[in-house]
């Protein structure tokens, strides 16, 4: 009797598990569809040649590479190069600055440390947009706007990057201090501890910092637009392509926007997928520590 009952119950459980799993699969498939559909649309429409404006269907009637060919004869190549230069330089310099900052705040106990961290927390509560006005005028006086916007943008991106130390500080906090102390006992200087012991261990966070710093300039829009100020030679891809979707331009540039989007997204996405592991570590670590 009892075995029969428990069998019945386990069969019931199995059945209900199967039902709930089926529901979950349906939800997940629907979600994947919703999450991917815009990107599928972008890719499909970038190959559409019969018209350049928005249409009410997804699959092109005539396929071709016209949009891509046109892309390479427009200012897009210039914007792409600008963005690439900004991204590479920013990624390198910003990483150095963030690591300096976070390592120091994690490892050293000096007099003003707590005050410094609180001060930066408060600074972070001011909307960064506010500083744009003045930075624009200062950069203009220095001749780093419009056509020369690239060095200006790099300068602004890296100058304040020390404020974003939280995630990597959290990582350094998890490296045991006994390692430092052992090395110090053996006669290493503080600088040697950093270069010989900590940096080799900090590979994941270094990669995370480089990756996020590299990806940010591709999407930065507001400040880049402010500084390039309508001069095509100083724009990055986001600013340049934003104009393509203006009311006046969208009808002749819509499919070009899609093609440009594909060209921008491919390298960034590939890089991101390759280094995904480090990104996930950084994001989860950062959120847990707050």
């Amino acid at each position: 009797m009892s075995t029969n009952n428990s069998m019945k119950r386990s069969m019931g459980l199995k059945a209900s598990a199967r039902i709930s799993n089926t529901i979950i699969y349906i939800v997940l498939i629907a979600m994947s569809f919703i999450w991917l559909i815009p990107f599928i649309c972008i890719v499909l429409q970038s190959f559409r040649v019969e018209s350049t404006w928005q249409v009410g269907y997804v699959i092109p009637q005539k396929w071709g590479l016209d949009n891509y060919v046109k892309l390479f004869h427009s200012d897009f190549t210039r914007w792409y190069l600008n963005t690439f230069i900004i991204a590479v330089v920013t990624a390198l310099l910003q990483t150095v600055i963030v690591l300096c900052m976070s390592y120091t705040l994690s490892r050293f106990r000096f007099k003003m440390r707590k005050a410094l961290m609180q001060f930066m927390l408060i600074l972070g509560m001011f909307p960064g947009m506010l500083t744009m006005i003045i930075l624009y005028r200062v950069l203009k006086d220095l001749g780093m706007t419009q056509a020369n916007a690239v060095p200006g943008l790099i300068l602004v991106y890296i100058a304040s990057s020390g404020m974003g130390y939280y995630v990597s500080k959290g990582f350094f906090d998890t490296i045991p201090k006994s390692l430092d102390e052992a090395a110090r006992v053996d006669g290493a200087t503080r600088a040697q501890v950093l270069t010989k012991i900590i940096l080799p261990l900090a590979k994941p966070i270094v990669i995370y910092t480089i990756l996020t710093a590299f990806m940010a300039p591709w999407g930065d829009f507001v400040f880049a637009r402010y500084i390039s100020f309508g001069t095509s030679a100083g724009m990055n891809v986001a600013v340049g392509m934003y104009n393509w979707l203006n009311k006046d331009m969208i009808n002749s540039w819509y499919t070009m926007f899609c093609a440009g989007g594909v060209i921008v997204a491919i390298p960034v996405t590939i890089l991101f997928m390759c280094l995904q592991k480090y990104y996930v570590e950084g994001v989860t670590g950062g959120a847990v520590k707050g």
Partner: peptide
Amino acid sequence: AIPQFISLLY
């Protein structure tokens, strides 16, 4: 991974 300005504008 896809820059927000592309996905959001689209």
